[in-house]
Amino acid sequence: MALSLFAIAILASLANFSTMTIQSEFTRVIDLFQLPFMHRALMGSVLTGFMGGLMGSFTILRQLSFFSDTLGHSALLGISIGFLLGLDPGWVLLPFAVIFALGVTYFLERTRLWTDALLNIIYSSSLSIGIILLSFRDDYKGGITHLLFGDILAMRTTDLIFSSVLLVVCAIFIGLTLRSQILLTLHEPMAIARGVSVSAQRTAFIVLLSLVVGISIKAIGVLLISAFVVIPACAARLLSRTFAQYILISAGLGALGAAIGMMVSAFFDLPSGPSIVTAQLAIFLLAMLAPNRRKLAL
């Protein structure tokens, strides 16, 4: 539906232009595609979208959606610590995300309060502290919108290399431990009885998830990052019957949504994070309308 709204907006704007402007618009689009930043942005979004969908498939089943949201919000704290220390925030963010994720997991296991309530405390406080720290830096106030909602220009070549490596690691990890992951997701004691090391598997998954969140923050932004992990997986759930299909469709839809969103962001000069999330929402709504939904017996 959102996709059709996009289409209507495009058609409406096109109708107002003369043939000349259509031509100039077309040239602009072609030119845009030839810019190196656009190549990086598209490749980066496809890579991170694919990873988001892949890891997201297990994230939602294990009810870690809110956990990934917390990781995303806390990333702002990592970025602001990087600024305060005078380091490149991009490089501070990844180790910070991993340590933070492991710390939160340990904390959640040690307390008896409700997980969602604790996560709420963690994400709101880390977001608040992050914003307060950033406000000490006058020169960065303008950049907050980019941090919150993503910046299409932020994708550097090093990010692309890191994303590619991380995607390969995630795919190998999920591939080689797939059966253990499925059984663990279905029934933890049954997995332990079969010799699956729950703590090792869980830690590895959370480390990878935090790296995926950390690397995707630049394009999607702190506030929307969890949608990037959650929406493709939910759409895939509506479209799939078997577990194998579910994971593949989730990864594919993640990449598709990110690519469409990134293009829309470039063409209409919109912030990249909201554009990607809206594109993913459109895919999710289409998945809800898909005829084979009945087979799911949800």
Binding site: L61, I182, L186, S240, R241, T242, L296, L298
Partner: peptide, 11 residues
């Protein structure tokens, strides 16, 4: 188990 988990009998 969570009945929303997509898994077939064969899997």
């Amino acid at each position: 188990f969570d009945r929303r988990i997509p898994i077939t009998v064969r899997e």
